[in-house]
């Protein structure tokens, strides 16, 4: 291929006289968010393998979180159902008792009833305390799990960044500021975080639903507080995205601070 004269003429024309131009207006260097998002999403799609590795951490973490939370909501539902059942039963026996032996041994029965309520109350208290402890242990477990996930994400992000040192160096040669590099990686992390959280959410929820419909029958579904569950899920999604984002900050900042010469030299 040889470049024809015409081509070079036009090229020369549009490349503006090789900087012989008068002093240009100093424009800002910029990377619009829309472009940054486009590039980042493309990066996620085209490096799906790498994104999947990073995302697995999030998927597992959020699946666990969702499991714990939906488990709590579901067991609440089951308990409520049981309580209701009990109340109905109690009302039934009461009415039966009342109609059968009217006015008889009313004093003795009152004392007995008081005793019974007292015992029930202390049992309830005990149960509440146990529940509280279980809740605390659960929270601790969740925090630990998320922490481990965060470290996992940081690690795999670090690898993903290292793989792309050359690319980062090249971008800087083309005029990218450090903040652009950070921005691109963080958007990518947020996208992976959202996708991973969603998958984790579905997995965690399906697991719990499956478990309870076996244990307590499909009828539990009616007793579960869906608004609460939805709220928890939204929260889990947010936590997943935030976790991914926060975990990606150290590697992204590290990559962006590298002098371009050093970044370009790295070989993988």
């Amino acid at each position: 291929m040889t470049i024809s004269m015409m081509d070079v003429k036009r090229l020369a024309e549009i490349s503006g006289g090789g900087g012989r131009r008068a002093v240009q207006v100093q424009a800002q260097i910029s990377l619009p968010w829309s472009e940054a998002v486009r590039i980042s999403i493309k990066n996620v799609i085209l490096r799906l393998g790498r994104a999947a590795i990073t995302g697995t951490g999030i998927v597992l973490g959020i699946a666990f979180l969702t499991y714990v939370w939906s488990d709590a909501v579901f067991s609440d539902g089951v308990k409520r159902a049981a309580l209701e059942q009990e109340r109905i039963l109690a009302a039934a026996t009461e009415s039966v008792k009342g109609s059968a032996v009217e006015g008889q041994e009313s004093g003795a029965s009152a004392a007995e009833e008081a005793q019974e309520t007292k015992a029930k109350l202390s049992l309830q208290q005990q149960e509440a305390a146990a529940e509280e402890e279980r809740g605390a242990r659960r929270a601790w477990l969740v925090v630990m799990a998320l922490l481990v996930c965060g470290i996992g994400i940081t690690n795999s992000m670090l690898m993903s960044v290292t793989e792309r040192f050359q690319e980062i160096g090249t971008m800087k040669c083309l005029g990218a500021l450090d903040t652009f590099v950070v921005r691109l990686f963080l958007i990518e992390a947020a996208v992976i975080g959202c996708l991973g959280s969603f998958v984790g959410l579905v997995i965690g929820f399906l697991f719990v639903m499956f478990f309870y419909s076996i244990k307590a029958g499909f009828s539990v579904m009616a007793k579960v507080s869906w608004p609460q569950l939805l709220l928890y899920m939204l929260l889990a999604l947010l936590i997943g995205a935030a976790l991914s984002l926060i975990s990606a900050i150290p590697p992204a900042v590290r990559a962006s601070r590298m002098p371009p010469a050093a970044a370009l030299r790295t070989e993988i």
Partner: peptide, 24 residues
């Protein structure tokens, strides 16, 4: 840092032995 980036963006064009195109 900003002026340097501006300079790299506007004043200098880089060509490398290894081409260094963005693969994706």
């Amino acid at each position: 840092a900003h002026e340097l980036a501006w300079q790299r963006c506007h004043t200098i064009g880089y060509i490398f032995q290894t081409f260094n195109l963005i693969p994706v």
